Amino acid sequence: MTKWEYVTVPLLVHATKQILDNWGEDGWELVQVVPGPNPEQLVAYLKRPKGGAA
Rank of each mutant, 00 (worst) to 15 (best):
A44P: 08
V13R: 10
W28P: 14
A15E: 12
G27Y: 03
T8W: 00
Q41C: 10
L20N: 15
T2C: 01
M1H: 05
G27I: 00
V31D: 11
V34N: 08
L42F: 04
L20P: 13
E29A: 11
G52M: 06
Q18P: 00
N38M: 05
P39G: 07
V13A: 05
E29P: 04
D26Y: 08
E25M: 14
G36E: 02
P49M: 02
Q41I: 01
P10N: 09
V31N: 10
M1K: 01
W23A: 15
A15M: 03
D21N: 15
V31G: 07
E40C: 08
V9W: 03
K3Q: 10
W4V: 03
P37M: 07
V13I: 14
W23L: 13
E25F: 04
G51P: 11
V34T: 10
P49K: 02
V34I: 11
Q32D: 10
V13N: 12
K17V: 04
K47T: 03
P35M: 02
L12I: 05
I19W: 03
G52L: 06
G51I: 09
D26H: 15
N38V: 09
Q32A: 13
T2Y: 02
V13C: 03
H14T: 08
A15Y: 00
V7A: 15
G52K: 00
V31E: 11
E25T: 08
N38K: 09
I19D: 12
G52P: 02
N38C: 06
L46A: 07
T16I: 13
R48L: 06
N22F: 07
D26I: 01
K47P: 07
Y6M: 13
L42P: 01
K3T: 10
E25N: 14
T16G: 02
G27M: 07
G36L: 05
E5D: 15
V7D: 06
Q18L: 06
Q32F: 00
K3D: 07
Y6P: 12
K17H: 06
A54R: 05
